[in-house]
Write a protein that binds this DNA or RNA. Sequence first.
DNA 1: TGTAAGATCCTA
DNA 2: AGGATCTTACAT
Length: 201
Amino acid sequence: MTSYIDATWLTRPSTLVAPELIGCTLVRQMSDGCILRGLIVETEAYAPDDPAMHAYRGRTNRNQVMFDAAGKAYVYLIYGSYHCLNVVTDRDGIASAVLLRALELEQIPTWVDQKERLKPHRIAAGPGKLCRALKIDLTLNATLLEIGQPLWLEHRHPEFEQQLEQGNLSLIQTTRIGLTKGVDLPWRWYLLNSLAVSKKG
DNA sequence: TGTAAGATCCTA
DNA sequence: AGGATCTTACAT
């Protein structure tokens, strides 16, 4: 049993949504209908009054999607080379999002090269690698996260919830990675012992 | 038109 | 620890 995550569930502060997205599934549907799934194992929250957030100094062409109502993808290009995927959260007019940093893929995409296949759990370990693995680029910016779109989200399976309750799985909260501002905000979450988590923390 | 910084990744 | 790489944002 899986269930789709709708915009209502995402209409909350990113700091509440980010930890709850751990254990949920990101679904990527290619234009040919091919579907890829990955378990979300690492997230970061970006919120108003957060100096690290792209929209901290107001609306720009790049960040305007973050101000939209919850339930869209915010995709941007970083360091000229990599894309990063965010889930837009909170109410219309409030800039906030959750960065998806790592996935445990259910299957390896056909286009992943031989060298990458040697360490399958590292294929989507890191926000840039995640987008490379799922062929996510700027054309997906501002798309709705809904079934039938290129990207959508599914809730945790009951088994995952049980494992959390029983303590067989643990969520860790810590500081974010790769920033020069807002470095002390503890807004990164990851699944303990996941081999796909992008760095230690 | 110029420039500095950046929510990364890979190699050494 | 350092370099690749180039867009974005903002100043001039």
